[in-house]
Design a protein around this nucleic acid. Structure first.
Length: 266
DNA sequence: ATGGTAGAAGGTCTA
């Protein structure tokens, strides 16, 4: 089965291109970030027509996440457990129940950007990561397969950027952010795409500004973190760079600044 | 020191 994450930067501004990608990539489970709309404005019918169960945790203008699954879903959670006072829609989770495979828990997250740093937005980011760490510890205690996928807004290592010097001091690359991400991995999670491609340089985001895409000035900030039980089932993964290309498919609309990242599990 | 791009909302903020 194929499990993808994509920061779409507005579901409605991007819909034709997103649907083309769904039809081509045929993912089984997808978490979306930055849908930038309330639940009622999410084009659920387009995905239901394609066989997906649709769960949305929306927000007006900013943020907003969704979880789409060809398989039955159960126990849907909106908002990061333990962080109920968070007014921003950045987390959705559900138990995914495939017919012919073991169930697993899927979390879709949009971690705060944190810029400018230092400052209150950076504090909010680090606080959010502390809550994510606590929730991950609780999930691990259940000793079951789970995936936490999404836009982490963290560049884990220098090799995950085109130019580490440029990103120095940015909230996505500051030591506090990277250490918090490393602490998640140190719990025993696997950064699936880095594990599969230990020596490759690949990105999931290119800034709209300054010709970032044309110059391949990218960063790797969209990740799938797997529990040991999920990592044991990992069979492959990749990044769909073509979804960032202005000429992708028949849709002339502009692309998201992120591309889909995906893995496959037994 | 600024703006460069994009989206939603609405005359600005976030990324």
């Amino acid at each position: 089965m194929k499990i993808a994450s994509w920061n779409v930067n507005s579901i409605n501004a991007r819909l034709p291109r997103i649907l083309e990608w769904f039809d081509e990539a045929k993912p089984d489970v997808v978490v979306l970030q930055e849908i930038k709309c309330v639940d009622e404005k999410f084009p659920a019918g387009e995905f239901e027509d394609r066989g997906y169960n649709v769960e949305v945790h929306g927000q007006k203008t900013y943020n907003g996440v969704a979880l789409l699954s060809r398989y039955p879903v159960d126990d849907v959670i909106r908002g990061l457990p333990g962080n109920e006072q968070d007014e921003q829609s950045r987390y959705i989770e559900a138990l995914i129940c495939p017919e012919e495979a073991e169930p697993f828990r899927m979390g879709g997250l949009y971690l705060p950007n944190g810029n400018p740093a230092p400052g209150p937005k950076f504090d909010y980011k680090l606080d959010w990561m502390t809550h994510l760490q606590a929730h991950t510890e609780k999930l691990l205690a259940e000793e079951e397969a789970f995936i936490l996928a999404g836009d982490y807004n963290v560049i884990p290592q220098a090799e995950d950027t085109h130019d580490a010097v440029i990103w120095e001091g940015d909230a996505l690359f500051r030591p506090e952010s990277r250490n918090a991400f490393r602490a998640l991995l140190n719990l025993g999670l696997t950064d699936a795409l880095r594990y599969l491609n230990p020596d490759d340089v690949f990105y999931t985001f290119w800034d709209y500004q300054g010709g970032g895409w044309q110059k391949d000035h990218g960063i790797r900030i969209d990740h799938h973190l797997l529990s040991p039980q999920a990592a044991d089932r990992l069979t492959g993964g990749g990044v769909d760079k073509n979804a960032r290309d202005p000429g992708f498919g028949t849709d002339a609309a502009k692309p998201s600044d992120h591309v889909p990242a995906w893995i496959t599990l037994d």
